[in-house]
Design a protein around this nucleic acid. Structure first.
Length: 651
RNA sequence: UGCGGGGUGGAAAAGCGGUAAUUCGCUGGGCUCAUAACCCAGAGAUCGCAGGUUCGAUUCCUGCCCCCGCUACCA
């Protein structure tokens, strides 16, 4: 019956570290969409996964002394657990280390090579041999490696290139003719103006400098680089170029690739070009959402933010977190996460409005009708208004959902929640209850409340998959008959003599003050735990890394006095200092501008590493380094417990 | 420094050429079914600054200031 298909994807995440609330945001959004489409009768394919290759992961794994695969297995297990916890209903989970994916990527690469869309050439760049890394002109500093500071060589590396430039005009045309292809529209202009129209360069799609990747099947010195490997997950997961490509033929092209705004470029330029080269249809839409910024104002910094989704879900419930993520931020724009915002949202929208509505309705039906409404209802004033509003809500919600406006969709549902709360005040059931003659009218009022709640409960399903069934249970709503999506469009689906069950608060109110304190404590604890972990790791290393007194003697530490200080032009962290050190004046560039103003420094005595090799910073020579203690927030210069003549040796 | 986003009542956030929505908070009132909740009313904004276009600008143009993210510089 469901011939309509809907294919939605999230990006595949890079498992170099634990995921945070920002990743959850994308995935929860995709999940809400997938659930919504399923409810509408679509045959949905919802894909998420992990992008597991690359130098960075290889490096981290080496540092930890495990194989890259062992390392990612561990992280990926955690990611799957998180999606499980957040009730993510993905139909498939792809890992770029899956055998099928690797094989198909090799086939794709070979195919593009055979038809001339990938060609072998040389990649020229500045190469740092010890780091085994290439750097671009912009990245290098003073001809040295930005990582280790050692000299670079202009090196050529054999590399495979994808003919991106060939597809430039076709891409521009496609984007111009399909205004929905890139959403929101502002991103479309960004792509056209910043990348496509100025001209595309061919893309380097293989590497020889590391081997944690999919080997190029016909040239095993090379590994397939991220573009071809990662982007193609959207089709390899469906069995593209395999014996069993039923799903590919069924679901491709994708309806939406949901991505963060930082990777819009890859999805709207490189990916479509690859598909054009493969002769496959392009996805219908790429939607670039904004960031969920973790530390908004200074408020949250001082109050501390717990951003571990697991802790948040444990404390407030999965649905509350899902609600917050999708409600707080207008999809497409950036938003800010703070514990306070989260708790306020839970209190006002979930506890006060929705939770309380269900609770008071349930309580009244129990109190006035012993839990079950009679068949006979007397229609009255205000009923029509509520009915109309309830019947409009689903249409509006659908409109917003179809354009991925989750926040607006929820706002629309909550308008109905508010209207229903207001209906109680208008009809004043407690007055009706005092007059036995008005029993029928009272029954109709209760029914209107229950029916409105039923419609609300069905509408919130995609967002809050756990809450909906709880409401059904409390309100005696029968799942199969009274909760299909289409049932929201008909008033009166709920049977007249509905019988409710005992209920307790779905969303208890949270004490903001207390809770913020509690979160703060957890936050501090986490920081402590991290700090504890690091020193133990370092300790082991340090035992073999003792230095001798001779090593120390190599340092020439001197007392110096700051005679002059000024900002370095074009740098916001650097100060240029002139130091009196014995008979000489030294010029030192120091990254302390965020913590000290030039005036503060005049006349101060500091400790200088006097025999440090001079370097140029931002074009200014620095002949040494001054010592300071610093953590993430603060920085204090190291001084003397009194005054000493400048030039005095420190040991 | 480059790129991008933004500055609208206490907070968040719409509007984008013609009485400045909405939510939270605040004040006052109502009600008592309910989770100190719900309902009603009210106060509170010269829409970052300075010019310009226009009969008229928060909305268009120019310049400037500030904030945020990425980026470079923290020897």
């Amino acid at each position: 019956m469901s011939s309509k298909t809907f294919y939605i994807t999230t990006p595949i995440y890079y498992p170099s570290d634990k995921l945070h609330i920002g990743h959850s945001y994308t995935t929860v959004a995709a999940d809400a969409m997938a659930r919504y489409k399923r409810l509408q009768g679509y045959d949905v394919m919802f894909l998420t996964g992990t992008d597991e290759h690359g130098q960075k992961i290889q490096r981290i794994a080496e540092e930890k002394g495990v194989t890259p695969k062992e390392y990612v297995d561990h992280i990926v297990a955690g990611i799957r657990e998180l999606w499980n916890l957040l009730d993510i209903s993905n139909d498939r989970f792809i890992r770029t280390t899956d055998k099928q994916h690797e094989e198909v990527v090799q086939k794709i690469f070979k195919k593009l090579y055979d038809q001339g869309d990938i060609y072998k050439s040389e990649y020229e760049g500045w190469y740092c041999t010890p780091c085994e890394s290439f750097w671009t002109e912009v990245q290098i500093k003073e001809g040295a490696c930005p990582d280790c500071g050692r000299p670079l060589e202009l090196t050529k590396e054999e590399s495979y290139f994808f003919k991106l430039s060939k597809y430039q005009d076709k891409l521009i045309k496609h984007i111009e003719e399909n205004p929905d292809f890139i959403q929101p529209a502002s991103r479309q202009n960004e792509m056209l103006n910043n990348f496509l129209r100025p001209g595309l360069e061919d893309l380097c799609v293989s590497r020889t400098t590391f081997d944690w990747g999919i080997p190029v099947s016909f040239d095993d010195k090379h590994v397939v680089y991220v573009w071809v490997d990662a982007l193609s997950n959207y089709i390899t997961a469906l069995g593209y170029l395999t014996d069993n490509d039923v799903d590919y033929r069924k679901y491709w092209p994708a309806d939406v690739h949901l991505v963060g705004k930082e990777i819009v470029r890859f999805h709207t330029i490189i990916w479509p070009a690859m598909l054009m080269a493969l002769g496959e249809p392009l996805p219908k839409q790429i939607y670039g959402h904004g960031w969920l910024l973790l530390e908004g104002g200074k408020m949250s910094k001082s109050k501390g933010n717990v951003v571990d989704p697991v802790i948040l879900a444990d404390n407030y419930g999965v649905d509350a977190i899902r609600y917050f993520l999708l409600r707080e931020v207008p999809f497409g724009a950036d938003g800010v996460f703070s514990n306070e915002a989260l708790i306020n949202r839970i209190n006002s929208d979930l506890a006060n409005d929705l939770g309380n509505l269900v609770n008071r309705t349930n309580a009244m039906i129990q109190k006035y009708f012993k839990g079950q409404l009679p068949e006979k209802h007397q229609e009255g004033e205000y009923d029509k208004q509520l009915e109309e509003m309830a019947l409009q809500a689903p249409k509006k919600v659908e409109g917003y959902m179809d354009s991925l406006q989750f926040s607006s969709a929820l706002t629309e549902i909550w308008k109905l929640v508010s209207r229903t709360n207001k209906y109680i005040d208008e009809t004043m059931p407690w007055v009706l209850a005092k007059d036995e003659a008005k029993k029928d009218r009272l029954a109709a009022v209760m029914y209107h409340l229950a029916e409105s709640i039923r419609i609300i409960s069905v509408l919130i399903q995609p967002f809050m998959p756990n809450t909906a069934p709880i409401i059904w249970d409390q309100m005696g709503i029968i799942k199969e008959v009274e909760t299909p999506w289409a049932s929201t469009k008909i008033w009166g689906k709920l049977r007249k003599d509905v019988k409710v069950n005992d209920a307790k608060a779905i969303f208890p109110r949270i004490d903001v003050e207390k809770e913020l304190e509690a979160l703060e404590k957890i936050h501090k604890k986490q920081i402590k735990m991290q700090q504890c972990k690091q020193p133990t790791a370092q300790k082991e290393e340090k035992q073999s890394e003792y230095i001798t007194i001779d090593d120390f003697a190599k340092l020439d530490l001197r007392v110096a006095k700051i005679m002059h200080a000024e900002p370095v032009k074009g740098a916001d962290k650097l100060l240029r200092l002139e130091l009196q050190m014995g008979g000489e004046i030294r010029q030192v560039v120091s990254g302390i501008a965020k913590h000290y103003s030039p005036e503060d420094l005049l006349g101060k005595q500091v400790i200088v590493v006097a025999n440090l090799k001079p370097v140029k910073l931002r074009g200014v020579e620095s002949q040494g380094m001054i010592l300071a203690a610093s953590d993430e927030e603060n920085l204090l210069l190291v001084g003397l417990d009194g005054e000493m003549p400048t030039g005095t040796k420190v040991s």
